[in-house]
């Protein structure tokens, strides 16, 4: 990475920062639109910017997932399932049994939602297992040879779930579903009552009046904590995993001994990470189901 010109020197710090910066398109403070050439520029764009790499990869992976499943679904036969259909059915049955185990109300949305979350998040996490330099280097090479941009200005972060926007985007979507179904199933009064009338309640009207704000603060915090913890857990795990992969990748540039040692480290961490990415996708899905189940339950 020839980063001398931008001030991001070829140091470990610069390398890490380069890897952790998204490919951003947005509005500069002076009003013109364009790609950010550095992390500082990306920051200066504020809210009116979009992470092209995150969107690109998440949509690509989503299309791969849905295309594969749609193909299996269209050719789904009752008598002789092919290999793809068997695989898809295995996943669908697994999701279906998980949903049935947790979710007791009647709602046709929950199972497809759980399937989408599980596979999509898994695929996004899976990008973490691709060696950290491959795709960014390729993007840098394409950027410098095809578009004539300095390779050090090409930022390419391949794991969408290490972008808080992606995880918070999903968590907020789930949160809106939880709010929608809470209000739909319990009514506005029931939902507000759930927020204000517990855990403390009293027969005495005066005391109850005192309890309402306390209850509201407690319940509101726990309500808001749901999407935040959901998003932060996934983001944090993937971010930490990515960070460790990057640190291991730095070892390759420090000589033979460390390079070989780093190779083993990367292999070990990748194998351990297979467990983490699956587990985190599963937990995201399970917690979504649990939250939706809570939204359907009357007290």
């Amino acid at each position: 990475m020839t980063a001398e010109t931008t001030g991001e020197a070829l140091t470990a710090t610069g390398y890490i920062k380069h890897h952790l910066t998204n490919w951003t398109y947005g509005q500069f403070p002076d009003g013109r639109l364009g790609f950010a050439h550095s992390a500082a520029e990306a920051k200066s764009m504020g809210f009116m910017a979009i992470h092209v790499d995150t969107m690109l990869w998440s949509i690509t992976l989503g299309i791969i997932f849905l295309g594969l499943f749609r193909m299996a679904a269209r050719k789904a036969t009752v008598d002789t399932p092919g290999a793809l259909q068997n695989f898809v059915e295995w996943i669908v049955e697994f999701i279906d049994s998980s949903v049935r185990g947790t979710f007791t109300s009647k709602n046709n949305l929950v199972a497809p939602l759980a399937l989408t979350i599980f596979i999509w998040v898994f695929l996004m996490n899976f990008m973490d297992l691709i060696p950290v330099d491959w795709l960014p280097s390729l993007a840098g090479w394409v950027g410098s040879t095809v578009f004539g941009v300095d390779a050090s200005h090409v930022y390419f972060k391949v794991v969408p779930s290490t972008d808080p926007n992606a995880t918070f985007g999903m968590a907020i979507a789930v949160f809106f579903l939880v709010l929608y179904y809470s209000v739909k199933n319990k009514g506005v009064g029931g939902f507000v009552g759930e927020l204000t009338l517990q855990p403390f309640s009293s027969e005495n009207k005066m005391l109850q009046g005192v309890f309402i704000p306390i209850n509201f603060i407690l319940e509101f915090v726990s309500l808001i904590a749901k999407p935040i913890s959901l998003a932060l857990r996934l983001f944090g795990n993937m971010y930490a995993g990515e960070m460790i992969f990057i640190l291991i990748a730095i070892m390759y540039s420090t000589g033979w001994v460390f390079g070989i040692f780093g190779g083993f480290l990367q292999l070990g961490w990748a194998i351990f990470h297979i467990l983490i990415i699956t587990l985190q996708a599963f937990i995201f899905m399970t917690l979504t189901i649990v939250y939706l189940e809570m939204a359907h339950q009357e007290h």
Binding site: A12, T13, I16, L20, E242, I244
Partner: peptide, 18 residues
């Protein structure tokens, strides 16, 4: 496991990048 893993990630970020 999530919380310490996040702590590890942020700690490494602080140690090596900041």
């Amino acid at each position: 496991d999530a919380v310490p893993m996040i702590a590890v990630g942020i700690a490494f970020y602080v140690l090596f990048a900041v």
